[in-house]
């Protein structure tokens, strides 16, 4: 997994609430057996018309936001399916940070496994950043995971919370599986005990 420490980038405003995983990456693109290459189909049904032509009004099609690395979103971003194709598509497009008042549980967890930082902030902070994002390519937002701060284009600073373990993994680009395998003795002990106490499992 690619590390995440700091990012300075353009933020795209997506104030719609309940942006679900089917919007982020529609089901027909789940047929891949790879993790890469989904960026071109990110938000496919919102981004392209029936003939496959770009819809100019869609935020990521606007010149100022074509290279956005941050999304500032409405409540409950990523609700719905467990498909990791959603963060894969965001990452492949170049999005490394999503900021919202709330995220769906599985999506939130999936982001951290892919080097994407989802940030939960109070409504007033999201509103402020949404305003900043509306200003387009001139409004660069800085995100620093180490210090857990976001700095807006006018210098205003907001701090955010993040789980210590998830932060550690993200900053160091750590592979969860490797970490867990270091605990193989504990897993084996658990299994041995269960084999006696709950042999039907």
């Amino acid at each position: 997994m690619e590390k995440f420490t700091k990012l300075s980038g353009v933020a795209a405003p997506m104030p719609l609430i309940n942006i679900d995983t089917d919007m982020i990456i529609p089901k027909l693109f789940l047929k891949t057996i790879k993790r890469s290459g989904l960026g071109k189909n990110l938000f496919d049904e919102m981004r392209y018309d029936d003939d496959g032509a770009e819809i100019p009004d869609f935020i990521l099609n606007k010149p100022a936001y074509r290279n956005a690395q941050i999304i500032v979103a409405g409540d409950n971003f990523g609700c719905g399916s467990s498909r990791e194709h959603a963060p894969w598509a965001l990452l492949d497009f170049g999005i490394r940070v999503v900021i919202s008042t709330s995220f769906a549980d599985i999506f939130y967890s999936n982001c951290f496994k892919n080097g994407i930082l989802p940030i939960i902030l109070p409504q007033e902070d999201v509103d402020k950043l949404m305003d900043d994002a509306e200003r387009g390519a001139n409004a660069v937002i800085n995100v620093d995971l180490e210090s857990q701060t976001i700095t807006g284009p006018d210098g205003g600073e907001v701090s955010f919370e993040v789980d210590a373990f998830k932060k550690h993994c993200l900053i160091n680009g750590l592979d969860d599986i490797g970490l867990t395998m270091q605990k193989s003795d504990a897993i084996a002990a658990f299994e041995a005990q269960n084999a006696t106490s709950m042999p039907w499992v």
Binding site: R35, E84, I106, N110, K113, I177, T180, M181
Partner: peptide, 11 residues
């Protein structure tokens, strides 16, 4: 998610 699927498969 799929990363967790891999984690469960492995551990």
């Amino acid at each position: 998610g799929t990363s967790e699927v891999e984690h469960v498969l492995a551990t």
